[in-house]
Design a protein around this nucleic acid. Structure first.
Length: 171
DNA sequence: GCCAACGTTGGC
DNA sequence: GCCAACGTTGGC
């Protein structure tokens, strides 16, 4: 399922067609869309991803120019808060080398980094968060990964059709 | 706070 | 390589 989607997107990329779409999850209390808005240039490295499947997507499939839904987890309600754009492709996540960081990984070395990040720049903050309950009851989003029970992956592919529907909900 | 779902670890 | 135990995520 996931593999199929990623494969499609890869093909898309190879054919030089439209950009890919993603959903990145962040705990609202940890790093919210407002935090991103306050960053210099409204951009930030998407650091702290410590899951191999998500890491692989970041490293291999997320490309400059791709568009990303900024999703707040742990919020009331959880939901999509806005859109950002990938402005720099995969590079080592610096927090893995920082003993002071909560994301420090003593097994990672600069020669062989284990974790990667991309840079995202804020594009749009939605007037209202598109809440997960609304996503779940919207026709056409039944298969959307974030709507699935137990879908913990923090970097998720989004289909163009799903993207369009969510953008319509945001207006 | 509960708990389901999922990932990781480590003994064997 | 299996699988039980444990830890984490994240909706509710």
């Amino acid at each position: 399922m996931l593999f199929g989607l990623v494969k499609d997107q890869e093909n898309c990329f190879l054919r030089g067609m439209a950009k890919n779409y993603w959903l990145f999850k962040s705990e609202e209390s940890c790093f919210s869309i407002n935090d991103l808005a306050r960053e210099k240039g409204q951009k930030s490295g998407w650091d702290g991803v410590r899951n191999y499947q998500a890491r692989n997507l970041l490293r291999d499939n997320v490309k400059v120019g791709d568009l990303v839904f900024f999703h707040h987890s742990g919020a009331k309600p959880p939901g999509i808060a806005g859109v950002c754009k990938v402005t720099k492709g995969a590079h080592p996540d610096p927090t893995q080398f920082d003993p002071e960081s909560q994301y420090y990984d003593p097994k990672a070395t600069k020669a062989e980094p284990r974790w990667f990040q991309v840079e995202v720049t804020l594009e749009t903050k939605f007037k209202e968060v598109v809440g997960l309950p609304l996503l779940k009851k919207t026709p056409g989003l039944e298969e959307m990964m974030v709507c699935q029970r137990g879908a913990r992956l923090s970097i998720q592919p989004v289909t163009p059709a799903e993207w369009k529907i969510v953008m319509r909900l945001a207006k």
